[in-house]
Write a protein that binds this DNA or RNA. Structure first.
Lengths: 218, 218
DNA sequence: GAATGGCTCCACCAATTGGTGTATGGATCA
DNA sequence: TGATCCATACACCAATTGGTGGAGCCATTC
């Protein structure tokens, strides 16, 4: 297995060197650089420096770890950023993950666990501790709402009209009520809905609602 | 590092033995037993058998992986359950995680990734693939809603029978189908549903579904 | 024992839904 | 210039749903 190239960004020298030492114990991990500020990191990356994973402290002097994460992910999306944090920094963690961080680990994580988590990022896993999971989940949901309806054709190739009808149905209106809203015949509404059913592969309002709500089609 | 003891629960022999072989390639993982049914697993645990991680298939004959997970977590909470699934089983995954699963991995995950994900569970991580993450997030949010406001007031004072009917309706069955399932008249089913509607303060299946799904009444 | 509440069932009704046709005008596209 | 898609609309039909009333049986509770 190829070695993982890891950068460390942490302002406190003792922590920085401690991390470097701890990670050096894992043969699969190679700490190729360590920086005491986000600015130094950015400057290295601009100069062609690369890493598989960046271990990023949040509380950095100058540019903080969140903004740094944003810049890294915007310019070098292939690099995974793992946020280093202390217990209780929920909100910062959320902002960091929204900025593109792949996950986070607590600073008091055991050495072996830290190695495993770094490796698991590249293996497709997302290390998240349960404590802050629900908050994180909320935020992700908000993101979804932004990204989903913005799409043009829609996931099921629904036409613009069909999307309108879909929303109305999901909001509990009957065919007749929807007909009044859009000033069309209820027969037309029904026609639209049957088309929607076909596209969503459902055949009743119950199935329809399950799909709409579970897949956040609103 | 101590070896991780892993159980496999998977009904298809080829898959089961394939997993056992793949995991045997990782020195830190020790597959101590493999079962073809949830019942066999439970019986082993009852007899004193233990594992650090259980790799659990969802689609098992007899007791399915979700119920099995529930039982395992209720009786042996220290055991982590990792759900083995195929792409697209969103709903089941959600239910499995709610049942206490530590995460899930897709069946087509690469061997090395699988090992890493198993190890990352015990390292505190939660292996979740991004595809279904947002859905999972939604569900967690819903859980929050339940535990916070829906306290002692009970779940709308529904009787045991009404809860059964509620589930069936939410699963898309018609009155008639439910009548067949419970061996009662469809008139009775309808009566129950009208009672449920009153208690939930709704008056159609669409409103009903919104409430059931959003407040996770299943 | 009477009252209450849960579960069962019946009849009857209006409204809604699911599904099938067919058809017309407009836009778009090959 | 056809062909196709979209939105509109109508007719007709079977099934399901939402709502009302009443009623019997059983267990628990007061």
């Amino acid at each position: 297995m190829k070695q993982l190239s890891v950068y460390i960004v942490e302002d406190v020298k003792e922590v920085r060197e401690g991390l470097r030492y701890l990670l050096s114990l894992d043969g699969e991990i190679n700490v190729t650089a360590a920086f005491s500020s986000a600015e130094d990191l950015i400057s290295d990356l601009s100069g062609g420096g690369r890493a598989d994973v960046i271990l990023m402290d949040i509380g950095l002097p100058g540019m903080d770890g969140i903004d740094a994460t944003k810049i890294v992910k915007e310019n070098y999306p292939e690099i995974s950023v793992l946020i280093l944090t202390i217990f209780g920094e929920h909100e910062k963690i959320i902002r960091a993950v929204k900025a593109g961080a792949s996950g986070y680990v607590l600073k008091n994580t055991k050495p072996t666990q830290l190695s495993d988590q770094i490796k698991s990022i590249k293996a497709g896993g997302t290390p998240i501790s349960p404590e802050a999971a629900s908050k994180l989940f909320d935020e992700f949901k908000k993101d979804e709402k932004i990204t989903l309806p913005g799409d043009e054709a829609g996931i099921y190739n629904l036409t613009a009209r069909e999307k309108e009808i879909l929303k109305s149905i999901a909001n509990g209106y009957t065919y007749k009520e929807i007909a009044d809203i859009f000033k069309i015949s209820s027969a037309t509404v029904k026609k639209h809905i049957l088309h929607i059913y076909r596209k969503l592969d459902v055949s009743s309002k119950v199935e329809f609602m399950k799909k709409v709500i579970n897949e956040n089609l609103l």
